[in-house]
Design a protein around this nucleic acid. Structure first.
Lengths: 230, 230
DNA sequence: TACTTTTATAAAGATTTTATAAAGATTTGT
DNA sequence: ACAAATCTTTATAAAATCTTTATAAAAGTA
């Protein structure tokens, strides 16, 4: 996640413009939607890392949008709203929002809250993880080493590996992996997964024909095994 | 985490009292510290699920306490402070705080923010079931063990076993099993069932000739017996 | 007992799923 | 705009799993 993608759902063009400039300046990629309908669609096929959601949308209640998003979207959602009533805040937070800012907000604070929320997405707070058989992931440098040699991974390969590392020992289904890495529109593209798994294995496994890290669970998914021996 | 433990670090006795009552009422367990020193010590040996930290402590700067906590404490920290300056908020959030509330705060909102923060801790609770004779099913990892050794099951075998486990002690008819695992079009394929039952027994029974788990109920179905001794 | 039905199991055959290379398309960086 | 890197698609071989067949053992029935 070198440049996290943020989806802004807000009907006020002014706010969207302000957010776009602010977020861009802070090295985020930005997508924008002006209505609930557009926002939900864009969330599905752009698979953002965080959503900024205005509660006062023209076509549908923001609370409803939040609920619909939470049926599948697991990453942070921050509410921006002119509504400052405690009732609204509690309702949004209990419906799955991670944070709630009352408009007008201070942009510096918003950015800090975005950074704080995105931090929780990172696989672990510790910057470096050592696994068995000489595998090492350094999150702060976005670097992976095998037997102390740097391995060059593409962005997608890195995302896939860190997603596995975060779920060590657990089977991740094809569906889940495709949704998390490529987005909900790709859950049937199992071939992608096979191609990238093969590439990853070629890079991190000692012998790609006898995988020690990424085990296949036929008809289900893959399991990453590497007891964290920190 | 049936009753999450919350550590309150605040020097004002009044606030501590208020928080203690509020949190208790909402089914949290509470520990309290009135100074930075006490707070750091209590965090270490009580290992709370969440920390409420006041920035204005008598003995040390709250920012410093936050930094020290973050050296090892990975669960949520929510700041409570009379300081409402953007500078303070940004600093705290960037130092690892998950949220920041300005005093005086609304207790309903605080509780909602606590719930929201704690939600993020939940997903990795493994749901493990232990049965008699060393059989163990870990649903979250999709893993089955016999005498602490991992048993490799195919997707269908796993589905069959978990269906049995869910109905421990009850006879499941051929029809029912075929419908649940293979679908309504397969209710006459009793031979499938025999083949898969034999395979499952070969893998999980100590002696497949004298089944202890999967009992045959002739002309009716099968019954899974394994008193859940959790 | 003799006969039929049901169950257990191994193993062959068929199908699905997976692994991998490599060609074509697109994106990114300079 | 060009080259390099990466992503996407296609093709095909290999592996795993499922399905069917065959046969023997066990259980039920008359």
């Amino acid at each position: 996640m070198s440049q996290p993608l943020i989806l802004v759902i807000d009907d006020e063009a002014q706010i969207r413009k302000l957010l776009e400039i602010t977020l861009h300046t802070s090295d985020f990629k930005v997508k924008e939607a002006a209505s609930a309908k557009e926002g939900l669609a864009l969330a599905k096929n752009s698979n953002p890392d965080l959503i900024l959601l205005d509660l006062g949308l023209p076509d549908e209640s923001g609370h409803l949008v939040l609920t619909k998003l939470r049926e599948w979207f697991t990453k942070p959602i921050i509410i921006l709203s002119v509504q400052s009533s405690e009732e609204n805040i509690i309702r949004a937070l209990d419906n799955g929002a991670n944070d709630y800012l009352v408009k007008p907000f201070r942009t510096g604070e918003l950015l800090a809250r975005i950074r704080s929320s995105i931090r929780s997405l990172l696989p672990n707070n510790s910057t470096k993880l050592n696994f068995t058989n000489g595998l090492e992931i350094d999150y702060s440098n976005r670097e992976v080493k095998k037997n102390n040699e740097v391995i060059k991974l593409t962005a997608t390969e890195y995302d896939l590996l860190t997603l596995f590392a975060k779920n060590e020992g657990r089977v991740l289904t094809h569906q889940y992996l495709l949704r998390e890495i490529w987005g909900p529109g790709y859950i049937n593209q199992s071939q992608y997964l096979r191609v990238f798994i093969a590439q990853l294995r070629k890079k991190i496994e000692t012998d790609p024909n006898k995988p020690e890290y990424i085990m296949t669970e036929s008809r289900v998914g893959y399991r990453f095994i590497a007891k964290d021996n920190l």
